[in-house]
Write a protein that binds this DNA or RNA. Structure first.
Length: 219
DNA sequence: ACATTAAGTGATT
DNA sequence: AATCACTTAATGT
């Protein structure tokens, strides 16, 4: 009975996000094989070097994807939100490549995890699924280019503003609960520099600062 | 009251 | 824009 309810819930979750993209037979099949994963704020969902067994689709919440090297240097690449999957993790799974990225939960989130075998089979079986995966590649690629643009063509102060408004948009709040160090890590900068830039923004009346908190005033 | 962690500042490269 | 070395402020125990 509870088993029944859980799989019904999964179907509802899937329908809510993918109902208009994927046919109901596929959605039902997905609901049957999906495993639920709940994550807490700042929980690391995937680490560099991990070997993925299952591929996630985000149902609720948001996940940030960042690059990280051996010495712990980071750079935020893009975000995943409701209905998003990361097609790159599919390649990771099927080719047995270790993950090159780190995925961190930005808020309490709910993911549905799918075994690789099914994902591959659906690729042959459902053209809507193939389209979904290809679309995912496309959006990921666009976002990657956007983040390259930001690094190559924008000053750090511009990047910081973009970062703040992105965070606000995704977390649905103008109140961002991050330390300056966390912001610096995401932007691959240093805490001192970020503190100074934030101070400037506060002086200009764009934001309000307090410990562990940045409040956006003009967005 | 004390220790710890976050944030601010001046000087240097 | 980054780093160092140091100060000051906020918070938890």
């Amino acid at each position: 009975m509870t088993q029944m309810l859980r799989s019904e819930n999964k179907l509802e979750m899937l329908q809510a996000h993918l109902g208009y993209i994927l046919e109901s037979t596929l959605l039902e099949e997905m609901a049957q094989v999906a495993k639920i994963r709940e994550t807490a704020t700042d929980e690391i969902v995937v680490n560099v070097g991990d070997h993925l067994q299952m591929i996630p689709i985000v149902i609720d919440g948001s996940i940030k994807i960042s690059r990280e090297n051996e010495s712990g240097d980071e750079l935020l690449l893009y975000y995943m939100e409701g209905g998003d999957t990361c097609a790159m993790s599919l390649q990771c799974c099927t080719r047995k490549i270790d993950s090159q990225i780190k995925a961190t939960s930005m808020e309490p989130s709910l993911l549905l995890m799918f075994p690789t075998e099914y994902m591959e089979r659906w690729l042959d079986q459902y053209k809507t699924w193939r389209q979904f995966i290809l679309d995912s590649y496309h959006t990921r690629m666009i976002e990657l280019m956007e983040s390259i643009d930001a690094i190559a063509f924008m000053n750090l102060d511009q990047r910081l503003l973009k970062y703040l408004s992105d965070q606000a948009k995704i977390l649905g709040s103008v109140e961002i609960n991050h330390t300056h160090q966390q912001v610096a890590d995401d932007l691959h900068s240093s805490r001192v520099v970020i503190s100074r830039l934030l101070k400037q923004l506060e002086t200009k009346g764009e934001i309000k600062l307090s410990r562990n908190k940045i409040i956006l005033l003009k967005f």
